[in-house]
């Protein structure tokens, strides 16, 4: 197995240079997909036979819910790499993912609540799905708070990695909550092994929105990571060169 790529990835400088080249293209693609997915879904799809026009919230709710979970899983992987390999970049990634994941989790909860009112008849219910998503938000906030509370970088890295890993058990709970318990929240529309239970004219904008949000996450993560790298590597020559050059991008 060629570990060179993995070890190269550990170099903040290498990541900074590579990400700088990819960033503009990813950003353009993300913007295009986001605009088309959301506008298509909002204005160019038919209403749902049962829910009417309120279902259009799905184009925000589902992507952000998926991402809130996926980002946390990524944080957990970064946590493992931090603890086992002590890779600086992994800890930086964990730190930078947290606020993005938290904001998406919050958005998923809020859009869900607003969607719930006209459909279920309530803003909130303590069923397994909603409760576990709320716990996810608390976990995110906990990781962010812990980071801020610990002054020493290395200690903070270890502590945040451990907290993230302790909380990762919540992710399968979220995923399977609608199967294990009787929940008000319905089961999955997009399934891994079965046909999606959504008409194609609604499905396409949804898939595009999901892709858009994943790309958007990648772009803003890279933005945060690059700044974090500059911050942590501020004593190196290459950072001084970049900063002296006016730090264009």
């Amino acid at each position: 197995m060629n570990w060179t790529f993995f070890h190269k990835l550990g170099s903040p400088k290498w990541f900074y240079e590579i990400s700088g080249k990819w960033l503009p293209w990813l950003a353009i693609l993300a913007a295009l997909l986001m605009a088309s997915g959301l506008i298509w879904g909002l204005m160019f799809t038919p209403p749902d036979y049962l829910q009417g026009n309120s279902y259009r919230i799905i184009f925000l709710h589902v992507p952000t819910a998926f991402l809130a979970q996926a980002i946390y899983v990524m944080m957990a992987c970064a946590g493992v790499v931090t603890l086992v390999w002590k890779m600086k970049l992994a800890d930086m990634a964990l730190k930078c993912c947290a606020p993005i994941g938290a904001s998406f989790c919050l958005l998923a909860l809020v859009t869900g609540a607003i969607w719930g009112k006209p459909t279920w008849g309530t803003w909130w219910v303590w069923d397994a799905r909603l409760t576990s998503m709320l716990i996810l938000l608390f976990l995110y906030m906990g990781v962010i708070a812990l980071r801020g509370a610990i002054r020493n970088t290395n200690t903070a890295a270890k502590a945040c990695a451990i907290l993230t890993l302790v909380g990762v058990i919540n992710i399968p709970i979220i995923k399977f909550s609608v199967q294990w318990w009787n929940t008000l929240h319905q089961g999955a529309t997009l399934k891994l092994t079965e046909k999606p239970s959504m008409a194609p004219e609604m499905l396409w904008p949804l898939l595009i929105s999901i892709a858009a949000f994943y790309l958007f996450f990648t772009v803003v993560l890279i933005l945060r990571l690059r700044t974090e790298i500059l911050d942590r590597e501020r004593r190196t020559k290459w950072v001084h060169k970049i900063v002296a050059a006016g730090a264009g991008n």
Binding site: L42, N53, L60
Partner: peptide, 17 residues
């Protein structure tokens, strides 16, 4: 059809995030 007051604020909040 009456759902605008749910959908549009939702998208507004989404845009803020």
């Amino acid at each position: 059809d009456g759902h605008g007051m749910y959908v549009w604020p939702t998208y507004g909040i989404g845009l803020l995030i």
